[in-house]
């Protein structure tokens, strides 16, 4: 993991102004079959992220094995994980400790 790593907060956090203990992290895991370009494309399409942010998150998945791609309330996290599974990405969700 790069010591200078910073994760940009996804825009969606601002939509759901809620206390941190109610937030869930949506995590995407690296896998050897999905193409890097496809993963970045899915992040843009599903979350509306810029190409720059989508590529940054994709590279984080690729190099570090996983990346938190969104921190949102539970119902929305379930929705995103379902959509990511629909796209064939390995995604899980866990309660945010931040």
């Amino acid at each position: 993991m790069s010591p200078t790593r910073t994760i940009e907060q996804p825009e969606v956090i601002e939509e759901v102004d809620t206390s941190a203990d109610r937030l869930w992290n949506v995590i995407v895991w690296n896998d050897p079959i999905n193409l890097m370009s496809y993963v970045a494309f899915v992040f843009q399409k599903l979350f509306g992220y810029s190409i720059e942010l989508a590529t940054k998150l994709m590279l984080e998945v690729h190099h570090e094995g996983r990346s938190i791609v969104a921190s949102v309330e539970r119902e929305k996290a379930e929705y995103y994980v379902g959509r990511l599974h629909g796209y064939g990405l390995q995604a899980t969700m866990e309660r945010s400790t931040g």
Partner: peptide, 23 residues
């Protein structure tokens, strides 16, 4: 094609119930 969403078995079963068939 249908990976796990949760580590916790009870949470996972609930996710499957809600999302599995639809997927």
């Amino acid at each position: 094609l249908f990976p796990k969403a949760h580590d916790d078995p009870a949470e996972e079963a609930e996710y499957r119930r809600l999302v599995g068939t639809d997927l």
